[in-house]
Design a protein around this nucleic acid. Structure first.
Lengths: 199, 199
DNA sequence: ACCCTGACTTACCGATCGGTAAGTTCATGG
DNA sequence: CCATGAACTTACCGATCGGTAAGTCAGGGT
């Protein structure tokens, strides 16, 4: 039953880390959302860093899961890639908080690097690289080349998801919704072009 | 001569805002880089918000300049778009700090929105949308549709530039350099595909 | 000689940060 | 019936934050 509190604390933390970043989000602020004190938070997680690490690993787990589900759902690597990327988009589109945290992780990596290795994204990236190399098939595509091909796609997705607030402010909610609905189609076109250029 | 101090303060501020974000970068830290006190900083800029605003507008000015230079350098809109995007990539690739700040602006917009309207990017985006609509020519392309086409490109660029530290850590400096060199070609392919699909 | 203005300093303020210490409350199981 | 441990609380700590107040000090115009 009291695991529930822990769960809720993790959700508050996810929301606030996404909105304000690691240093901007305060323990007191996170705990306040549930009417608790920051010491309750520290009781469950010990240190702010540990709370953050748990939030981060939970997000990257979900991402990796999504790619592996796509892998086992299809035989053709091109289909796997399409399903994986559209799945990730669906995931991060309905939970933009998590995407925001991952992008923040890119920005803060310079400082965090000394404290904690933060390669939470690596298994996820490697899985995508694997699929891409499968598409290329026998003509041996290097890791770096494969990464060069999918990284722009990933970047376009993350950047768009993370731009939701600003785009809505600048061009209106209706226009953003239209872009949002169109986006999976944009992904499909890109993936098909990529598969065609590799096959 | 003492304008020089102001200039150097702006550069320190840009570097630290990029590395730590608005709330993570302290006035004392920025001033320390020049061996000054935070009060010297406040003497020049009054408030932290004003310092930040100046940093931001200086960046967006440079971006907009780049697009307009591309506009007047070519006749064909497709050439304009290619030059504009490759110019922006060159710009943000050699000054990743500034790109980091712009991406942070996307992430922090939720809170800042109440304090300051931060649409520094809007003129820049509108200029790109204008070029894109020119490419479509007489078949009237809506603003939203044009934006939907170029935003992924912009996202891919920004995301890649901002990933420099992490990618270097994960895949090695040599591999990142290879990706970096390849990237303008990636942009060219994307722009040509876009122009072809619009013409 | 005078003062003024711009560039800076030291000194200080209240607020807030992450974290520690020492309880209190309460359900559970021997 | 009571001991134990988990789930919290209040109280406090030193550090750091942005910002204010009041000076110091050099150079230039009158």
């Amino acid at each position: 039953m009291q695991d529930d509190t822990r769960e809720q604390l993790l959700e508050s933390a996810t929301r606030l880390f996404a909105a304000k970043g690691f240093y901007g989000a305060s323990l007191a602020g996170i705990a306040d959302e549930l009417g608790l004190t920051k010491q309750a938070l520290l009781h469950h997680f010990g240190k702010k860093e540990k709370l953050y690490a748990e939030v981060l690993s939970r997000i990257s787990d979900r991402m990796l899961e999504c790619v592996e589900a796509a892998r086992s759902a299809h035989d053709a690597p091109a289909d796997q890639l399409l399903e994986a990327l559209q799945g990730i988009y669906a995931l991060s589109s309905e939970a933009p908080h998590e995407t925001r945290i991952l992008v923040r992780e890119l920005l803060d990596s310079e400082r965090r690097a000394s404290e904690v290795r933060s390669w939470y994204l690596k298994p996820f990236l490697d899985a995508l690289v694997g699929i891409t190399r499968d598409i290329a098939g026998k003509k041996n595509l290097g890791n770096t080349e494969a990464l060069s091909r999918i990284y722009p796609l990933l970047g376009a997705m993350s950047y768009f998801v993370v731009s939701d607030v600003v785009l809505r402010q600048m061009y209106g909610k209706a226009n953003y919704t239209r872009m949002q609905r169109r986006f999976p189609e944009e992904i499909r076109e890109q993936v098909e072009a990529l598969a065609a250029s590799l096959a």
